[in-house]
């Protein structure tokens, strides 16, 4: 291994940050990890844009235009890009809208559902990212090198996965750590 610390970026796209919470659940092992890595863009650092990194961890699927931009930024900057958790791997919960037409969803949520203010409209502020017709797992948009499934992957699974990667081993989880739920 190189002497310098590995530079790591993390982000959550169409996810719930549950995978990040699980990441933090490695508890005191975080200290061991920080001996080996330093963080670039991540909710932990509050860096807004990702620079060149060794490793990128992406939680969540791709549901809107902003997700695409962030994912591309990660792919461009990270030598190794990892899909972290069920939503990144197969779209997860957000993808359960995929059998519905987005136009019907928008109309129902913003215009026709009960309890909306009179004259409610679908928001059209240019600041808001537009949703995609369907939610996609991240491997359908950019090349992904490794996948760590789970909703969320357990702290032990994340630890095993990262220590394997950092040590230069192909990650291998085995029974008990590999989970789709």
């Amino acid at each position: 291994m190189a002497d310098r610390k590995l530079r790591v970026a993390t982000t959550s796209l169409a996810g719930c940050f549950g995978c990040h919470m699980s990441f933090l659940d490695i508890d005191e092992r975080l200290l061991d990890l920080l001996e080996l890595v330093e963080f670039d863009r991540s909710p932990i650092t509050d860096i807004k844009h990702c620079g060149p990194c060794d490793l990128g961890l992406v939680e969540g699927g791709v549901c809107n235009a902003e997700n695409v931009h962030v994912l591309r930024e990660f792919r461009k900057n990270c030598k190794i890009l990892v899909a972290l958790g069920a939503c990144a791997v197969n779209g997860g919960l957000p993808a359960q809208r995929n059998h519905l037409d987005l136009r019907d969803i928008l109309a129902a949520v913003y215009e026709t559902e009960g309890g909306l203010a009179r004259g409610a409209r679908i928001p059209n502020d240019p600041e808001l990212p537009l949703p995609l017709n369907q939610v996609h797992p991240i491997h359908e948009v950019v090349k992904i090198d490794y996948f760590l499934p789970g909703c969320p992957p357990s702290a032990d699974a994340i630890w095993k996965f990262l220590t394997d990667l950092i040590a230069g081993r192909t990650p291998h989880l085995g029974h008990g750590l590999i989970h789709y739920d």
């Binding site: 899909a83 791997v89 995929n98 369907q134 491997h139 499934p149 989880l173």
Partner: peptide, 10 residues
Amino acid sequence: MSPHFDHFYP
């Protein structure tokens, strides 16, 4: 570790 292919979402 992943479904690899593009999803059909039937």
